[in-house]
Design a binder for these strands. Structure first.
Lengths: 338, 338
DNA sequence: TAATTTTCAGAAACCGGTAACAAACAGACG
DNA sequence: CGTCTGTTTGTTACCGGTTTCTGAAAATTA
């Protein structure tokens, strides 16, 4: 048994397809009586207008694409949660794509989206390469794009970010005030603007407190747990920092594991602070001081911005930047010795 | 500037649309030369076949829908990650829907999917209500459905689950062997089969070790953190259990928080074990003994099963059940006093 | 009552592809 | 040279809706 279509429904009611179609859209003229009759019959026969036929005719899909570097990550899953909520309220569906931080996948996803599959794109970039021209084609096709959190500076499109510079400055300042003077900064992709911005906050805080900058303390990490463990252990042994500031949640965990392995006590020997959306940071051993981004809210804002662009493209400045505040939450991992 | 379509591409090449169309599908006859010429021109003009037009004609969408209770949850985000990987390999796209454990949303999502938007559905159910007839209509529409993890027993469709009974039995047994005799079982939805199965393992383990069953120790929790905190504190004070077994990750965290508040020491005063997909369970204070489900693999298996159904519906028995093993990982939260 | 406007329903074109069928053309063969 | 076969391309109907245009009937107005 196949799906019932508008033709069959029309025949069952002895009406034309155009009349039946009208019953499902509010604007057109149709008598109240027939509309009722059609809707009743439609419900009885469980008729749903074919989505692809409507989309083809109307030239819009009521679907938005969400591209993120990874899914199994607290920040992104919370952000998607926020996007999903707004999309549902607006009657939109969301397609999810994970780039796994691979540039090729990012390019491929974007290219495929040129086919009308989605009406707009919300994206947090992978940041693996420097050629972002493939994103410029979107504007030509009138496919609105909103960046969130991880962005490309050279692409002009609205974005939702957090006050990364201030947060980083505060984070480094906090470590300094807790007595740290050799603070390592852990980053995954130094080239990505978010990594750079956060690093600048760290550097400026050092300068304010006249702490010499040692570039060996800027540690470039990878996405592999194993490699990071090696890198971090080496760094901890050789450079003996008394504070670690991680620009990414995962690196805070990696630091914990490395410290466990090396019998370095947190916070006595080493204080740790990190960007993190982990809800159970208070349950860690020791509880982790975090800069927590409003992940769900970022998703919500990004989605609302995209919908605004869809509803009236002129109303949104392409340079629009929504900046939300992260929160520095002090916990045991940066406590001073009693 | 609008999207270029097949007609314009054909005109640019002085060919008919059918010839151009053929260049993009492998089966049809077309000379090698023209195919090359077409593909080159397509690339030059950045032509992408309109997805909705193809879908309408071919009556399939190359899209699968994934319905989960929540997104901001380690288990589900890992499972989606697994699904996404397989889908991408197969050239499929995935639509994501979160029910937020609300029955109405689940029904509404399923109903909307009758419109051809997706070729198949992978779902973990909300379990809020008892009428699941809306799912039976899917089979009539030849819309394949695969359950994973949280399933409805009364719906006959392939499923991917874990050995919940055995895992629960082992978990309870582990607590008993560690010296617990008053073990609370924390559950969110007692009616859901997964809650029942897991509870049975717990009950049978108690029986095997001749430990009396006290139904006050079966604690029905909610999805609200605040409510759970109240419920758990009350339970801990009144019933003084020496072990807690949580059927859901979130409840293990809630137990930790409650114990912190009440100064109950884990594991000395109370041992805790729980189902959890948290990768950083070793970093908790104390590290949490978990039954860890192979979340990503569950997603992968569910997706592979769905694709098998799509490729040859007869080849998959509707009673097909893929059972994967969870792992019991012992950590400090269930350690015996030295 | 006749003229005019309004209301409501149907016919048909259209969205952008796909594929069955038709046709043109080249080469093989008697 | 004519017929046959195979290859390649074009013509056209179709997928399932939406919407413009058209016309008949009903309602309003003169």
């Amino acid at each position: 048994m196949h799906n019932i279509n508008i033709k069959e429904l029309a025949r069952a009611l002895n009406l034309s397809t155009s009349t039946v179609s009208r019953a499902f859209r509010d604007n057109s003229d149709i008598s109240k009586g027939t509309k009722q009759r059609i809707l009743a019959k439609a419900k009885e026969l469980n008729y749903q207008p074919n989505h692809y036929a409507s989309n083809l005719r109307e030239q819009r899909s009521k679907t938005i694409a969400v591209i993120v570097p990874e899914l199994a990550n607290n920040f992104f899953s919370q952000a998607i949660h926020g996007i999903e909520r707004i999309a549902r309220e607006k009657g939109y569906h969301i397609l999810i794509y994970a780039t796994e931080d691979e540039y090729e996948k990012e390019v491929s996803f974007i290219h495929h989206l040129h086919n009308g599959r989605a009406d707009g794109i919300i994206m947090s970039v992978s940041g693996e390469a420097n050629d972002h021209t493939y994103l410029n084609e979107l504007a030509q096709k009138r496919l609105p794009l909103v960046f969130f959190d991880r962005v490309y500076e050279d692409i002009v499109t609205p974005r939702v970010i957090t006050n990364d510079y201030d947060s980083s400055f505060s984070a480094a300042e906090h470590l300094i005030k807790q007595g740290c003077s050799r603070i390592a900064y852990l980053v995954i992709n130094k080239n990505l603007s978010i990594g750079k911005t956060r690093m600048q906050g760290y550097i400026d805080a050092l300068e304010k407190y006249h702490i010499p900058f040692d570039d060996r303390l800027i540690v470039d990490c990878s996405n592999s747990y194993k490699k990071n463990n090696t890198i971090l252990k080496k760094m901890l042994k050789e450079l003996k920092p008394d504070g670690v500031f991680t620009s990414v949640e995962r690196l805070a965990f990696a630091t914990y594991y490395a410290c466990y392995d090396l019998d370095i006590r947190i916070p006595d020997d080493l204080k740790v602070i990190g960007f993190s959306s982990l809800e159970i940071a208070p349950l860690l051993n020791p509880s982790l001081t975090t800069i927590t981004q409003p992940a769900t809210e970022i998703g919500v804002e990004a989605a609302m911005l995209l919908f605004k662009m869809l509803e009236s493209p002129e109303s949104v400045d392409v340079n629009k930047k929504v900046v939300l505040d992260s929160k520095l939450i002090k916990r045991k991992s940066t406590e001073k010795k009693a």
